[in-house]
Design a protein around this nucleic acid. Structure first.
Lengths: 414, 414
DNA sequence: GGTACTTTGTCAAGACAACAAACAAACATA
DNA sequence: TATGTTTGTTTGTTGTCTTGACAAAGTACC
């Protein structure tokens, strides 16, 4: 029963930590001088110089000019070299695999999509995925040598010890497939893999509507279903077996409500997924058979009936979100997917439901906003995960508690 | 907007980390030799020796004997010196303040309780609390000088930046009271303060029914209400403003169920608290006016009516727990309080409800058990928090993600 | 009992990262 | 031009871990 033991600290670890510290500061600040880095990190100027030399040698950082003086020598401006490496991000969906190549700042510089049927299983699917990666590698404008990692998102839970799928409901036949190992061995690159909702959460947190949040909940209303990604203290939380945030198959309870009649329990996915919304609208002949969600949202503006469907859907989502807010106390809730990101009605109705049902002190400190990254969120998140991995400082044990402490009197440990 | 920046690594930090690493290993293992520590921590034997000398000088560790040989020189056995320091743990409840003095292994060596009315407000309450601490300090069998920290639990949310209460529903008049500062200044000791459910969770996690869990949910059915404490990767999770796990004032939704009729929404605390259970039983004249919860549980064995009340209560609790499990995916759920810890019926009914309502893959990996520490959980947890604080290694930034990674190919950072 | 091998704990020498202090470069201000 | 300020580098010191050697204290086998 050995848990992941804390790392032992030696000189090389020290260097790694400070290197990562400096690097992250440069990534966050954009343009910064050695002296400012020393001030921010409280490292000595000489140490900073030494570390910067390392980073310049590794071409992760470049000197891009001279800053303005404040009464003395003008500083040399350092910038993160976002084009030092490139990352491939993949999003495996139910009927398509989309891929992006991004630089280290998540700027997409190449994008491609293939159609795909997840029901064909891994014997058909894996070669397709590999071929897509191959195409991206060879046809990329940046050259294969500069692509240094691959990130993959799949619509289902994963065993995160070995990077295998575990009985994913929307991926029949894909149980226990060692996706990570296969790709890693084929392409000789580090491969990161995760649930698509988690990845989308990651992307929104880093570059989208979740920036600056401390604890964020991301609800992902994709074509494949409904999932949630939880970010705690800047880190993805997956739960004990990786099913944290798997709200899609939750039994939903909705009591009598002023605006809705009594409703039997069902799963959130059955009640409020994109597919359900489309089906309801088609059954009521409010949209055509070949209309997609974009058309639905557009037609909603002039159709009270579609609006009613959206309100009801939002109500279900709101119930689930209220529950999450009560338990989790996030400071931001981001709702991603085509409908949430294009229909203000949905978001507003969700806000109203949450305000009625969640703890007011928690709601008042939470902003509920639509996603900001659009169609490629999950692929972008896959790239984000792989990127973070490249620059992550070594994992150290956190202190045993997060309680409230007096700092006035010293501790024994120090 | 400067967030708590990651620590810069220098030589003293290195020493601190390794010291904490060794100390925690000794605390966990109980009896261990220098050589074994070197093997476990991957530190060199000479480094371990040096650190151990420090720890022996600080009398945190003692040499307690000679072990058995495995073909060579016999090892010197080291043990944590649990009696090196003592901790005071306080639990402020609605009508009582209980205090314990524990050694560093949470063994209670002194205990005391005063009656108290939280409604009298802080001007009456704080002096009482201070007096109780004074009494514990002077009358303690271990001597004032060896008491090195104070932990306090209160039944409400806290602003954990400055250790003040914030608008606690069950503590009228106690808004924004700087409890931590006052006690810290009065007694010149480090003071830790937290919500009572969080502290109880801590105690059960460390010494009770939560041992060995990775992600644990603790539901606390106390006389003051219902609260939950969440432990994530061995750490208390408090949420953005400290209201994580505040399930007591959550609007509960219960749909039609085979065994219970339709029920209007209400807060969990109103529907399933200890007070409500007692009130219902008294109204139906199933117990006497002066019977307490112990009597209620005893009489339940021969009273189908009381059993019905307990089943219904368990059902409500089960609904809340199912929701938490779906979102959180814990591997253990511990339910504390007199009724859960003495009534098997309650626990079993909760299990049944949860099994019906939560995601099966998550439920199958979660054990739902009653608390094991009894009456003094929260006070014990307060001591536990203060103890952990004494031995916590410095807080370092965790890596940015917890995703799934291939380790086959090196990263840029290393 | 004697010899060979193991294991434990300590010691001295060396490596390495950060730091402090001095220094040179480059600039602002009076 | 003289003075002071800010930036970045160089040099020597400090503190920690590691390696390798060594003494101490045992087991196993002849």
């Amino acid at each position: 029963m050995n848990r992941p033991s804390a790392l032992t600290a030696d000189l090389s670890l020290m260097r790694e930590l400070n290197r990562a510290l400096v690097l992250q500061l440069i990534r966050r600040e954009g343009r910064i001088s050695r002296a400012d880095i020393a001030k921010h990190t409280k490292l000595s100027r000489s140490t900073v110089s030494s570390i910067i030399n390392d980073l310049i040698d590794a071409s992760l950082v470049t000197e891009t000019g001279i800053g303005t003086s404040k009464g003395g020598r003008r500083p040399i401006i350092l910038e993160f070299n976002y084009q030092a490496n490139y990352i491939i991000g993949l999003d495996v969906s139910r009927n398509a695999v989309s891929a992006v190549i991004t630089d280290l700042n998540a700027r997409i510089c190449s994008r491609r999509q293939i159609s795909f049927n997840v029901n064909d299983g891994p014997t058909v699917g894996m070669p397709l995925i590999k071929q897509l990666i191959s195409t991206m590698l060879t046809e990329s404008p940046v050259g294969r040598g500069r692509i240094s990692a691959i990130g993959v998102g799949v619509p289902g839970p994963l065993d995160f010890r070995n990077g295998r799928t575990i009985a994913p409901p929307v991926m029949p036949g894909w149980d226990n497939v060692p996706i990570r190992e296969e790709l890693s061995q084929t392409f000789r690159l580090p491969v990161s893999i995760d649930n698509d909702a988690n990845l989308a959460a990651m992307a929104e947190y880093r570059w989208g509507a979740g920036q600056g949040a401390q604890n964020m909940v991301y609800l992902y209303m994709s074509s494949a279903g409904i999932g949630a990604g939880l970010i705690i203290d800047s880190h993805l939380f997956r739960g004990s077996i990786g099913s944290a945030g798997e709200v899609g198959h939750t039994t939903l309870s909705v009591e009598n409500d002023e605006s809705f009649g009594p409703i039997n329990a069902g799963s959130l996915e059955a009640l409020a997924s994109q597919i359900t919304v489309l089906r309801l609208a088609r059954e009521q002949k409010l949209i055509n058979a070949d209309d997609d969600v974009h058309a639905l949202v557009r037609k909603a503006e002039s159709s009270p009936e579609i609006q009613a469907i959206l309100r009801r859907t939002a109500h279900y989502l709101g119930v689930a979100i209220a529950s999450i807010i009560n338990i989790f106390n996030p400071d931001r809730v981001v709702i991603g997917g085509v409908i949430p990101e294009t229909s203000p009605l949905l978001i507003e109705t969700i806000r109203a439901t949450v305000a009625r049902r969640a703890l007011s002190i928690a709601v008042n400190n939470t902003s509920i906003v639509p996603g900001a990254l659009g169609r490629n969120v999950a692929a972008l998140g896959a790239a984000a995960l792989a990127t973070e991995r490249l620059f992550a400082p070594p994992a150290l044990e956190r202190p045993a508690t997060l309680g409230v402490h007096s700092n006035e009197v010293g501790s024994l440990a120090s």
